[in-house]
């Protein structure tokens, strides 16, 4: 094992980690917004939009990110619509994640106990107040585990970005291997780099999960 090579490659990994984290963060944030929007549309049963959102959720959840990215990056420019590869990465991740987040929020809203909804109605809340004070606060809390799992999933999916030549952790590793043929060294660094990102994130998510469980009503 050539440790000097690993040390020499650390700056490349450091910047690649920045790319991975930056794209993942923006993508996850956008998926969050899209997901909340989707769950609103489905909850309030807004006509037409509801159909569009349902189709979108199924499309994004049932296709691989890689082919979504290829379509965005290689297909769409043929129609005159082109983005930079980073933009493609973010759009792809947000497209994929939005569907997953939407489904997570919807699951949470569905899980709010019927007694809560009935009680809200009894004390005279209208539809909007019911959503604002009863269903959304509780539904979002209930969807936390699914959202946490999705965040981890999306972070891992960023490794696919290397397929459209984004210089993320995975691609930098392939590049270094191509140049120096030190496969074990660079692959080990790659695994460690992902572990550095994913393990603390996993712990943070389970910590948040525990916190909100305390906050939920009646348990």
């Amino acid at each position: 094992m050539d440790f000097q090579a690993i040390i020499d490659s650390l700056p490349s990994y450091w910047s690649a980690m920045g790319v991975t984290l930056k794209l993942a963060l923006i993508g996850i944030l956008l998926s969050f917004i899209i997901g909340i929007f989707c769950s609103f549309v489905i909850y309030f049963k807004i006509p037409i939009l509801k159909t569009i959102v349902s189709v979108y959720i199924e499309l994004s959840r049932n296709t691989p990110l890689l082919i979504q990215l290829f379509f965005l990056f290689y297909g769409l420019p043929r129609l005159g619509i082109s983005f930079s590869k980073e933009a493609c990465g973010i759009i792809g991740l947000a497209f994929l994640g939005g569907g997953y987040m939407g489904e997570a929020f919807r699951g949470g809203l569905d899980a709010v106990p019927k007694a809560q909804v009935e009680s809200g109605k009894v004390i005279g809340l209208n539809q909007l107040q019911l959503a604002r004070y009863v269903i959304f606060p509780q539904g979002l809390t209930l969807s936390v585990p699914a959202i946490g799992a999705n965040c981890l999933f999306l972070l891992k999916e960023t490794s696919v970005f290397s397929a459209i030549a984004i210089m993320d952790l995975t691609n930098v590793t392939r590049d270094l291997i191509g140049m120096y043929y030190l496969t074990s060294e660079y692959l080990l660094t790659l695994v460690v780099a992902y572990a550095i990102i994913l393990v603390p994130m996993g712990l943070l998510i389970s910590w948040i999960e525990r916190k909100v469980r305390y906050g939920s009503f009646g348990n």
Binding site: K156, S159, S162, R174, T183, S184, L187, Y194, A195, G202
Partner: peptide
Amino acid sequence: VIPLLVLLFVFYYILPE
């Protein structure tokens, strides 16, 4: 935890070597 693409690379490059 390890992304599957990374696992594929690890096994694809390291096993034969």
